[in-house]
Computed example of a mutant assay.
Amino acid sequence: MITKKDVYRVANERLYYLFSLAFQTGDERYIDLMERIGRRMDITLPQDIKRMYCKKCKKPYKNVRVRLKKNVITVTCLECGDIRRFQINR
């Protein structure tokens, strides 16, 4: 019998596989598929995946500018110009 835990495990594996494909090819459709799987299964994307692609242009971060000021990491996507800020806890 398939349990809910098994379904989430398969979905999580699929998320990581799709992200690896997206990072290799640079194609945004894999990231769109990842987000749709997450919404359909009602799971949040893992934090390490969430911080590795631009939410605006849906492309993996390959061409970015990273700045560190006090306790904030600022990541600027040079493809679309979107800026994301992450708080660091020290």
Rank of each mutant, 00 (worst) to 15 (best):
T76G: 00
R40Q: 10
L45C: 02
P46W: 00
E28G: 10
A11T: 06
M52K: 12
G26K: 11
L15K: 05
R65F: 02
R65W: 02
D42A: 13
R90T: 10
K55C: 05
Y61Q: 04
D82F: 06
C54H: 09
V7T: 11
L33G: 00
K50E: 14
G26W: 12
T3K: 13
K58F: 08
I2D: 10
Y17W: 07
M52F: 03
E35A: 05
T44D: 14
R40N: 08
A11Q: 04
N63V: 04
A11C: 09
L15D: 07
E79K: 05
K58P: 04
V64A: 02
K62W: 02
E13W: 11
M1A: 14
I83T: 06
V7R: 08
N63F: 06
N71E: 14
L15N: 07
D32W: 06
R40L: 13
V64Y: 03
L78S: 00
R67F: 05
A22S: 15
L18A: 07
G38E: 01
L68K: 13
K56W: 05
F23W: 08
G26M: 09
M41R: 05
I31K: 04
R85K: 14
T25S: 15
T3C: 11
G81K: 02
I37C: 04
I31Y: 04
A11H: 01
Y61N: 06
G38W: 00
E79G: 00
Y16Q: 12
G38Q: 03
I37V: 14
R40F: 12
K4A: 08
T3Q: 11
I37E: 04
R51N: 11
D6Q: 15
D48F: 09
T76C: 02
L68V: 13
L21M: 15
C77Y: 03
C77H: 00
T25C: 13
M1Y: 10
R39Q: 11
K5A: 13
R90G: 08
C80M: 03
V75I: 15
E13K: 15
V64T: 09
Y17F: 12
K62N: 04
N12E: 15
S20D: 13
K55D: 11
I43Y: 05
K5H: 09
L21C: 14
T25Q: 14
G38I: 02
E79N: 12
D27A: 11
L45M: 12
F23H: 09
M34H: 06
Y53N: 05
T76Y: 00
R29L: 10
V66D: 02
D42S: 15
D82N: 09
L45N: 03
Q47P: 07
I49P: 00
V10R: 12
I43W: 02
A22R: 11
A22W: 11
L33R: 09
R84L: 01
V75R: 03
N63G: 01
Y16S: 12
L15W: 06
F19C: 07
R40I: 11
D27H: 10
I2F: 14
I49G: 00
Q47D: 13
N89E: 07
V66Q: 04
R36Y: 01
D48G: 04
G38K: 03
V7W: 03
N71D: 15
L18D: 12
